[in-house]
Structures are given as structure tokens and as C-alpha cells.
């Protein structure tokens, strides 16, 4: 009881800070200097119509490389932590059948979901979307496959190969940027192209496709590890 009271007291303190922030908040009428720079220069400099993508992949590309590294670490640690509970392939869990609807539906839907993921990351520089969203959609397709057949062992070798090859190419393109263009992760490696075309915005579609594959593989490996742990 006293513990709950302390929690409520603490939350009241935080809430009063939030109230202060909320009631003194006034939305900007104009874009601030950073946003103004991005709004004015993206189309001419980068050639991407989605400004968020230009920021994520080029202007703040190093951040994104770090983010992908954090995800890789997460996937690796999840694999490490759960490695002890790995299910033997011989003693399969006996589970209730998943049902006709899920089994047939997943066979039909999983390829389409993965296709949608590829579409989302291939068009990341033109429409809302990009590598992280596309990768998450691909992983949701993998999740559907795992739901339909929980005993299925996804090939870790395939997932790991996709993950490391795309990561390697991502860093390779980043270093090529130093040699052939303005600097690390510079997207001017490839021609800028026409604004709004699929093959435009320099190396952004390529980088985002690699990020999409990498993120999809990392999420899939987390899902596979979680689904393969022994039931306690």
C-alpha cells in the first residue's frame, strides 16, 4: 500500500513537470533553421522526395549506421541469452494443430507480405516508408510463417548470410563514398537522377534496400530465437 502511494506521489511529480511543458508549449509557426535547411536543400542536393529518408540515410547517415549496429547487437544478445534453451530437433513439441484457416492463409499471405516489405523499402525515398519499415514488414511475414507452423526451424544460416552480406555492402558503400564522393555515407555515389523517379536520389535506394534486408533478417532472427526456445 505504501509502495503504491510512493509510486503515485512520484507520478504526480512527473505529471506536474509534464503539465508545465504542455501548458507553456506553443507550436512553431515557421520551420526552425535545421528543418528549413532540409526543406530547401533536399530536392536539389539529395534528389529524394521523402525528406525524412534524406535525413535518415544521408544527412544523419552515421546515426543510422549506429542504429543498425544496435539492432545487430540486440539480435546477437537475444541469440546468446536464449542459446541455452534451444530446442533439440529430435524432441519436437506436441502442439495442437493450427487450423486450416491459418495454415492456408499463411501460405497465401506470407509471400505477399514479404513482397510488400520489398516494395516499401525500394520506394523509401519517394513514399512514406523505408528500410526499417520494410524490414519490419518482412519480419511480420516471417512471424506469420512461424505462427502457422511453430515447430518449423527457420534456417539460421540463410538469415545470418542475408544479414552479414547486406551489412557488409552497407559499410562498403559508405566507404566508397569517401573515395568516390564527398565523404562517408555520401549518397552522391550514383547519379541523382530525376526527382520522383524510382532510380533517383543517388545511392539512397540501394542503401535503404540493404538496410531493409538487414533489419528484416535481424528481426527474423530474434523471432526465430524466441520461437525456438524450449517451453518451460
Amino acid at each position: 500500500m505504501i509502495r503504491k502511494f510512493a509510486a503515485i506521489l512520484l507520478l504526480a511529480g512527473i505529471a506536474s513537470i509534464f503539465m508545465g511543458l504542455l501548458f507553456t508549449y506553443e507550436p512553431d509557426a515557421e520551420l526552425n533553421t535545421t528543418a528549413r535547411y532540409y526543406a530547401e536543400r533536399t530536392a536539389a542536393d539529395i534528389g529524394a522526395t521523402n525528406i525524412v529518408t534524406a535525413i535518415v540515410v544521408t544527412y544523419r547517415g552515421l546515426d543510422t549506421l549506429g542504429e543498425v549496429t544496435v539492432l545487430f547487437l540486440t539480435a546477437a544478445i537475444v541469440g546468446l541469452v536464449l542459446a541455452h534453451g534451444r530446442r533439440r530437433t529430435s524432441d519436437k513439441r506436441r502442439l495442437a494443430p493450427v487450423g486450416e484457416l491459418l495454415a492456408t492463409g499463411s501460405r497465401f499471405l506470407a509471400p505477399l507480405i514479404i513482397l510488400l516489405g520489398v516494395y516499401v523499402f525500394a520506394n523509401g525515398h519517394l513514399t512514406p516508408g523505408g528500410g526499417f519499415q520494410g524490414g519490419a514488414i518482412i519480419a511480420s511475414g516471417v512471424l506469420l510463417i512461424l505462427l502457422a507452423d511453430p515447430c518449423r526451424c527457420l534456417s539460421h544460416r540463410v538469415i545470418d548470410t542475408v544479414e552479414s552480406v547486406s551489412g557488409l555492402f552497407y559499410v562498403g558503400i559508405a566507404i566508397l563514398g569517401i573515395v568516390l564522393a564527398g565523404g562517408f555515407l555520401d549518397s552522391h555515389l550514383l547519379p541523382r537522377g530525376e526527382l520522383g523517379a524510382l532510380f533517383s536520389a543517388g545511392a539512397i535506394p540501394l542503401i535503404y534496400a540493404l538496410i531493409g534486408l538487414k533489419v528484416g533478417a535481424e528481426f527474423s532472427s530474434i523471432l526465430a530465437h524466441l520461437s525456438e526456445t524450449e517451453e518451460l
Partner: peptide, 24 residues
Amino acid sequence: DPVPQALVLTAIVIGMGITALMLA
């Protein structure tokens, strides 16, 4: 302003990773 959107994109992905770690 596109900058908060780019930051939230990062935050969502990292949040998902943290959730997976906590579950493990």
C-alpha cells in the same frame, strides 16, 4: 518539421530491440 520524424523512426526501432532484449 521532418527532424522529429526521423528521430522517432530511430526511437521506434531501438524500442523494439529493447523490448526483445527484455523478453529474452
